[in-house]
Amino acid sequence: MCHKFVDLLQQEEVQNTFPELKELFIRAPASHKQAEKTNNGAKAADEIIEYKMSSVPRGLCLIINNVKFDPSLPDRPGSMRDEESIKEVFQWLGFTLDVYRNQTAEETKDLLKSYSQKPHDGDCFVCFIMSHGSKDGVHGTDGGIFSKDDIFGPFSGKSCPSLVDKPKVFFIQTCRGREYQLGVQIQSDSYEEVKAKVEIEDEESLQLDSFEMTTIPSDADFLIARSTIKGYYSFRNTDTGSWFIQSLCKQLKTHCPKGEDVQSILLYVNNEVSEKKASNIYKQMPIHKVTLRKKLVFRVPDQQ
C-alpha cells in the first residue's frame, strides 16, 4: 500500500495541485559512467569507420588498356597517357601494378577470372578497364564483347573469398551509348559576374569510346566509377588522354594526402569533367555506384 501511495504522490496531476511535492520526488540523475556508456554507444552506432588501408603493398591494381584494335574498330590514341597517369598515382599510393594491353574479349574474361582466383593479401583490389564499348558491353580488341557479369561476377563474395570484406574498386573508361550530352545554361546568384571555368577542346583531338552497363553486383564492398552516364559518349583526347581518367588521377593526387575518402574525391571528378566542353557544346557526366559499407580512404604510405 505504501508503494501505491508513493506512486500516487508522484503523478503529475497530484504534483500540480501540491507543487511542494515536486521537490520531494526529484529523480536522481544517471551516474556518470552510465551517461558515458550511453553517449559512447550512440557515437559508436552513428560512426562510419574506414576500411583497413595499411598493408604493404596496399593491394593490386589491375590495368586493362585496349589501344590497338582489329580493322573493324578504330585504335584509341591517348589511352597510353591514361595508363601512365594511373601507374604513377597507384604506385605512389602503394599498390602493386599489373598491366595488360590489347586483350580480346575472351582473353579479358579469362584474365579477370584468373585474378579473382588469386590470393589477395592486401587491403584492396583496384581494376581499370579502358576500351571501346557499346550498349551490349565492353569490346575486346577483336570486336568481341564482355559483359558486366564477366567483369564483376568473378569478384563476388562467393567467387572470390580472399576479397570478402575488402573494397573492390572498378574504374571504367568507355562510352555507354551513342548520344551526345548537351549542356544547360545556369545563372549565378552573386552580385558579381561569375564565369564558370570550362575547357574547350579541339574537336579533331577528341575521340569516343562506346559502352553501356546497367547495374552493379548485389554483393557488398564494390565501388564502380564510370566515365559517363548511361546512353552517352565519353571523350578522350588523342594527345592528353581521357577527360575522366586524367581528372581522376589529378584529384587523387590532390585529395588523398588530405585523407579524403574516394567517394568524396569522385565528386571533385564529376564537377571537373562536367565543366569541360567538346566542340563548345557537348558535355560529359561521370557516375559512380557503390555497395561500400565503410569509408574508403587511400592512405599515402609515406604519410603513415
Results as ranks from 00 to 15, higher is better:
residue 250 K to M: 06
residue 271 N to A: 13
residue 249 C to K: 10
residue 267 L to C: 12
residue 255 H to I: 01
residue 273 V to A: 11
residue 237 N to R: 01
residue 271 N to D: 13
residue 242 S to G: 10
residue 201 E to F: 15
residue 227 S to I: 03
residue 204 E to V: 06
residue 225 A to V: 12
residue 217 P to Q: 00
residue 259 G to T: 02
residue 246 Q to Y: 15
residue 268 Y to F: 04
residue 262 V to M: 05
residue 240 T to D: 06
residue 214 T to V: 06
residue 207 Q to D: 07
residue 255 H to W: 14
residue 260 E to T: 12
residue 269 V to D: 04
residue 247 S to I: 14
residue 268 Y to T: 07
residue 229 I to H: 02
residue 232 Y to V: 01
residue 210 S to M: 05
residue 214 T to S: 11
residue 239 D to E: 03
residue 251 Q to M: 10
residue 228 T to D: 00
residue 224 I to A: 10
residue 273 V to C: 11
residue 212 E to S: 12
residue 271 N to K: 09
residue 267 L to P: 01
residue 241 G to K: 01
residue 230 K to Y: 14
residue 206 L to D: 03
residue 259 G to Y: 03
residue 267 L to N: 11
residue 235 F to Y: 14
residue 221 D to R: 00
residue 253 K to E: 04
residue 210 S to T: 06
residue 242 S to L: 04
residue 270 N to G: 12
residue 226 R to L: 12
residue 258 K to W: 02
residue 250 K to G: 04
residue 272 E to Y: 01
residue 261 D to Q: 05
residue 210 S to H: 02
residue 224 I to E: 01
residue 208 L to Y: 02
residue 225 A to Q: 06
residue 209 D to K: 03
residue 240 T to L: 07
residue 203 E to I: 08
residue 234 S to K: 02
residue 227 S to V: 08
residue 225 A to R: 02
residue 202 D to I: 13
residue 267 L to S: 07
residue 271 N to W: 07
residue 270 N to F: 08
residue 204 E to R: 04
residue 225 A to Y: 13
residue 225 A to K: 04
residue 263 Q to E: 11
residue 202 D to H: 08
residue 252 L to T: 08
residue 261 D to S: 14
residue 264 S to I: 14
residue 210 S to Y: 03
residue 226 R to E: 15
residue 243 W to Y: 15
residue 232 Y to D: 15
residue 254 T to M: 06
residue 262 V to G: 06
residue 208 L to A: 03
residue 268 Y to M: 05
residue 237 N to Y: 07
residue 267 L to Y: 15
residue 254 T to R: 09
residue 218 S to I: 05
residue 265 I to S: 02
residue 216 I to E: 02
residue 206 L to G: 11
residue 272 E to G: 04
residue 223 L to D: 09
residue 273 V to W: 10
residue 241 G to E: 05
residue 228 T to K: 00
residue 245 I to R: 01
residue 234 S to N: 08
residue 222 F to I: 13
residue 234 S to Y: 02
residue 228 T to H: 00
residue 233 Y to T: 06
residue 226 R to S: 15
residue 203 E to T: 10
residue 273 V to E: 08
residue 228 T to E: 00
residue 246 Q to F: 03
residue 232 Y to M: 13
residue 217 P to V: 00
residue 226 R to K: 12
residue 249 C to E: 12
residue 216 I to C: 01
residue 238 T to K: 11
residue 207 Q to W: 06
residue 271 N to F: 07
residue 226 R to T: 09
residue 266 L to M: 11
residue 268 Y to N: 08
residue 257 P to Y: 10
residue 255 H to E: 07
residue 233 Y to N: 15
residue 242 S to A: 11
